[in-house]
Design a protein around this nucleic acid. Structure first.
Lengths: 196, 196, 196, 196
DNA sequence: GATGAATGAGCGTTCATTCAT
DNA sequence: GATGAATGAACGCTCATTCAT
């Protein structure tokens, strides 16, 4: 792997192609063309097609982790931290159409394979949510009866499902702020109407 | 198409095979073998492979709809109705391993195709959530600032992600009750600790 | 084969379908539908698909033989007999679009199989030409150096190729008379201009 | 498509296989094996099976055109030109068994498709005959009442039918010279016995 | 005899992967 | 390292034929 530059180019191309066509419908030659590289070159940098998918995730989720970690460093309040996570995720999904699609579709498609990998980037990303909640509980902000291990999935599932809004074309053109507000509201104070 | 029985057999087999292998890795011959039917027979009942997938969904989601609709008929309180929906979904997912997998994986995998179908069973299923929330709002149980169209996705996303728990083998063996409690709690009253 | 009526119906349907689609592109179910008969019924009257084709030929060529034989009975002059053969063939081809197509396309398509059958109807048909020529030679009308065995093919080839004119749609709309005149002229007196 | 050599190899193999089995009975894998090439390789040079057939024609008929054109250049006399065309066609058919079969069988088999192509090589080949006749008429050698457009078909039909002689195995072993003499005689001076 | 649902062998085509240049 | 032509296993789908009713 002499040229990390080429590795990056392929990852970028693959992200785009996977997003557009889905993993199974994407052809290696599509990725090669997009990356302006020969088909065979891809195999100098990746073992096989699935390996590319894996790398795309690690890479892209890695970026998400770095980004949100940076943002969270400056904030102590668990409530705010939760909102930061939510906002950042949704903003990134809206901004990076390709990444969003890849997470939406591919994460599920090959979930059995990907998710069974212990200690992968995706788990790491989810664990940021768990940590926020744990801290919030320790500091007395969040209810003690919520299990961070379950709650992290509940929140991620919501975010992932909801971020489709921007990629199915004809749906309601909700803003990131609007969706963030909704999801933050529900997770923070729930659906119940305030007692008057 | 004289024998609806055979149609059912194929659907059932397909559900199982899709769940086990995913849509793209599933072979028509796998489904045929599972259904104890010749490959060609499948094409007497379905137009093509994708048509099978579509039918599996319509069928299985249809069952979910019928079931939860029946349960909801007896209950008026929006709070309880929400809990019923959540419990039923999770229970079914835990019970019907194949259905759960098919929804998890396949719904996403081919989401672009499936979800763009207007007025499909899946939308119908989601709209049950929206209706519960709307009614709850009208009756003053739920906050007015929540948008049912967004909230239905938030909830479904949570349910779907969380119901993986039972199908990835090595995860924590949470009970349906436990998970229902968590998700109901969060959606009903949010994460915030009660003011003492 | 209790009902020769059904046998005929199938032959007729097959002629039509083979003409429209060609032997290999024709499906048994097409023929069955055209004959208003169940697929399986066809196998009560024919051994297999190829057997149907064979029967169509024998039948249709048989009709041609009977017809032209009848016409030739009334005429002794070899010149006129030749013209009768030519005219009759071309007229039939123009009239019976399906038969023409079947002879054009199918005779060739499966020629190896069909033509190797000794003593078949097709040979019989060609031999009518040979006989006309032989008689003409015996009676001193036709040149002695022409070999009837070769000449019969030369004439049939001409007739067959030329009768496409009416079935390719956009070609010159020559009349049967015109084409008969041309072909008769060439075969009778050749291309050479008369010495002035 | 770096290697035109491979393109040629496949064409040659296809000619052979089509000749032996007919278009519909020929398998891509047969052609591949004959060409000593992988199945998939064929699709690097051709779009599909039918495209191979088309290419075989264009190629082979093209060769015929070039060859006979060259021969005709040296000759002005329409009578001789006609004989040259006839002889050349028959000689080539006798020499190139595969080409002959492909023209015999395949040209007809898929005639609807192939012949509807305007301005194809086959038309070009037929038009050489028409031109010979037209010139002959202008120079006063050939009768004026013959229509070149029809006559070209009459002659080609004869040639094509007659050239079967060498490929059905058990027929009379006529020489090219013999057949050429017969066909030339008939077309030049007709069947009529010379007036004594 | 008639039916048509069922069968399953068979084929055109695709595409991840390899390897000679 | 880079290339891209070549490979060939794999699969969705068709359709002639069979056979239980």
């Amino acid at each position: 792997m002499k040229y990390p530059d080429k590795h990056r180019k392929i990852i970028r191309a693959a992200t785009k192609v996977f997003a557009k066509k889905g993993f199974f419908n994407a052809r290696i030659s599509d990725i090669a063309k997009e990356a302006k590289v020969a088909d065979g070159t891809i195999y100098l940098y990746f073992n096989n097609k699935f390996d590319i998918l894996l790398s795309v995730f690690e890479q892209e989720i890695g970026k998400l982790i770095d980004q949100v970690t940076l943002l969270l460093e400056k904030e102590d309040n668990p409530n705010n931290r939760l909102e930061i996570f939510i906002t950042n995720h949704l903003e990134e999904m809206k901004k990076n159409k390709y990444l969003a699609e890849v997470i939406h579709i591919e994460l599920r498609q090959t979930s059995k394979l990907i998710r069974e990998y212990r200690k992968n980037k995706f788990s790491e990303y989810l664990n940021i949510i768990a940590t926020i909640i744990e801290n919030g509980q320790q500091e007395g902000f969040f209810r003690q009866d919520v299990k961070p291990e379950i709650a992290k999935k509940i929140l991620f599932g919501s975010l992932d499902e909801v971020s489709r809004i921007w990629h199915l074309g004809n749906e309601c053109p909700a803003t990131v702020e609007e969706v963030t507000r909704q999801i933050t509201a529900i997770f923070r104070t729930g659906l119940l109407a305030p007692i008057p």
